[in-house]
Design a binder for these strands. Sequence first.
DNA 1: CCGGGGTTGTAGACAGTGTCTACAACCTGT
DNA 2: ACAGGTTGTAGACACTGTCTACAACCCCGG
Lengths: 197, 197
Amino acid sequence: MAPTAPPRDRLLRAARQVVARDGLAGLTLRAIAREAGVSHGAPLRHFPTLASLLAALAAQGFGELVDAVAAAVDGVDDPRDRIAAAGHGYVRFALDEPGVYAVMFRADLVDTADPAYVEAGLASFAQLADLVADAQAAGWQADVPRDRLTTVLWANVHGLADLWLHGAPQGILGEDALDDLLALSTGLATGGRPPRR
Amino acid sequence: MAPTAPPRDRLLRAARQVVARDGLAGLTLRAIAREAGVSHGAPLRHFPTLASLLAALAAQGFGELVDAVAAAVDGVDDPRDRIAAAGHGYVRFALDEPGVYAVMFRADLVDTADPAYVEAGLASFAQLADLVADAQAAGWQADVPRDRLTTVLWANVHGLADLWLHGAPQGILGEDALDDLLALSTGLATGGRPPRR
DNA sequence: CCGGGGTTGTAGACAGTGTCTACAACCTGT
DNA sequence: ACAGGTTGTAGACACTGTCTACAACCCCGG
């Protein structure tokens, strides 16, 4: 094993630890440098700006999101059930990595022009679009433009994750309502079928 | 007319102008003070902290959101159409006031414990819950717990607004797809009925 | 072997930030 | 007229992102 990872990776790992420990408010360039054990200006040797470092972190996050969704879908056969499973995996990822997920959708923190960021986001969208394509081929909402249908489903799970991370529904519904909300949301969207048993 | 409004209101108005002009990144306590024409420490006479000023701004925003949704629903009779109209009004508000809307859901910027903020958010939720209650009374999803159904619908429109403000769908679908997305989203959620003509 | 050259890191500076504090002006009510 | 609260000012502090000058360090060609 490499005892010392490449400095870019070390910085990104440090950023993850910082955001996991101190949240978005503590995710500062100097805090990342401290966490990585280097001087406050060192990160700028590898990223021209904090926004570009966060773009790299967000791009990593999109990659892991794709993996999480793929794992959630794995083994599910029915195309509509696969969409529901994907939504489940999506939200679970957001809750497992709340800091990284928050960074991924913070246009004011991230350099949204970063090519790796854009590409990773599009790959995540394409993954969901493929699942939609399968469901459409099986007859579900076959006459709706695929990208629009995909975007709406994406907005559904993203909204649920964002609201939940914000904490609003917990005060109304309690801490353990998320699974029910997810089942309800995907059930509504995919045609009100009862959840699989 | 009062030539000089109460200082609290002047500060909140200044904050709106700043966020409308410079976005979230420019929404700083000192910028608000400059916009209001006072010294950099003056706002702290009226708000103990920046987060509390932003909580007051967000609470105002929730009030205006309620008004916007009420106006959008006004004149629509069918309960399910009212829900669709509410979603339309919701997203339109978010796009008309992107700065204020962003502040409303930024838990890291806002003092989320502020009573006025909590109350205003709950009032907005209650408004949507009432619309849901009417639709349920008319037979739509009558067996689903109302607060959970409301939360899911809220998440749908919030996710669409947040994604759109983030700019992601525009790159895929173009700048003018929003109305179609909204119709598709509410159509899916309320049972796939065709949009009203 | 040696000596550059690029990579990586350091340390200090600068403007800008939120918040605190000491001070002053002003308005109000008795 | 005067005391007290409200509102505002100005300076300080620690912190931030970014820039710059400087120094180690490693690798590779002669």
